[in-house]
Computed example of a mutant assay.
Amino acid sequence: MDYLTTNRANWNARVPIHVDSDFYDVNGFKANGRSILRPFEVAEVGDVSGRRLAHLQCHLGLDTLSWARLGAEVTGLDFSDAAIDQARAIAADCGIPARFVTADVYDAVEALGETYDIVYTGLGALVWLPELTRWAEAVAALLKPGGFLYLSEFHPFPQVLDEETGTTVTYDYFDRGPHVWEEPHTYTGGRLIESHTSVQFQHSIGDVVSAVAAAGLRVDFLHEHDHTLFCRFATMSGDHTGYRLPEGAPRIPLMFSLRASAGLPRLSDEAS
């Protein structure tokens, strides 16, 4: 299966549903002037004032524009032309200067043609990539010396657990796929009229760290978090700020965040 064409059609079909959804609350984002980034992301990235930031796989660009509201000079990239059209329109309505580019993430270096202080990849992005080596190489090429990748993602471990209680190992952690899904609904609750098929790929924590290290980036930290942004298991409680397993239950990692830095050039490299 041509995963790229299939997934692009699927995400283009999702865009109008997502724009109108309560989940994204685009009108609220335009009106309130706030960032929708998670508090741990803002704390771990630090001050972005005046820094150039590229957001890969940016979808509607709300996270991208949230970094801009915190002071960054932002560029967003996504393979969905429908999503990029909406991102540009939202930026214009908000009066936020931002650049949005349509391209596959593997082609980001050529498509963007610039380097950045920060490359950001947000939640739910990596499952759409068949392998991470090319992704990490693209990230490294986009970074200025001394810049860093910041990745915020759903943890792969919960994927092996039963969906009711999250206590029984049901699926294979090392089954990387491809996994083909036929789903007439999107995670915002809306119904897709067409392009129901999507293709996803599972990556272990080891896959992520190894790809980043092989691209020449230095891992500064890998943090695992005991909460997530949706009701992953029926036993969870919470709201959009965080869902957790019942109090007293053993905790498991539900999200993770990683920061990895590009090295400064050596004197010998500069001389050459």
Rank of each mutant, 00 (worst) to 15 (best):
H155C: 06
P250W: 01
D2W: 14
A215I: 02
V109D: 12
H225M: 05
S21C: 06
P16M: 09
D2G: 10
T165E: 12
E114M: 08
G238P: 09
E163D: 15
E183I: 15
T241M: 08
D25W: 05
L126A: 06
G71N: 11
C58F: 05
L264P: 06
G190T: 03
A213K: 14
Y106S: 12
V208Y: 04
V101L: 00
A103Q: 07
L254K: 01
A211L: 10
D47S: 09
I36C: 12
V101H: 00
P246K: 01
P184F: 03
H240A: 14
L112M: 08
P250S: 02
M236R: 04
R259P: 14
D63A: 12
Y187F: 13
W181T: 12
A92Y: 03
S35E: 08
G166R: 06
W135G: 00
F230G: 08
G122E: 05
S261W: 03
A13L: 02
E110H: 07
S66W: 10
S152A: 15
S35P: 03
I17P: 00
E153C: 08
R244L: 03
D22Y: 02
I17W: 03
T6C: 15
V160W: 05
V26K: 00
I84A: 04
A68R: 04
E224G: 08
H223I: 06
I252S: 00
A213D: 11
V15F: 12
V139R: 00
G206K: 11
S80L: 11
F256S: 05
E183P: 02
N27P: 00
R191E: 10
K144T: 08
L60G: 04
L77I: 13
D269Q: 15
D269H: 14
S272I: 13
F230P: 01
P16C: 09
L222V: 15
D81K: 10
V169I: 13
I17C: 01
F40I: 09
R69P: 15
P158M: 09
N12V: 05
V101S: 00
L65C: 05
D175M: 04
L142W: 02
E153T: 05
R251M: 13
T102H: 01
A141L: 01
K30A: 09
G177P: 02
V74D: 04
D207K: 10
T186L: 02
Y106E: 14
R69T: 14
L62E: 15
D175E: 12
Y120L: 01
G248F: 10
G146M: 00
A31Q: 11
G166W: 02
F148H: 13
H155E: 07
P178A: 07
S80W: 11
A262M: 09
H59T: 12
R232W: 07
P253Y: 08
H155D: 06
A31T: 11
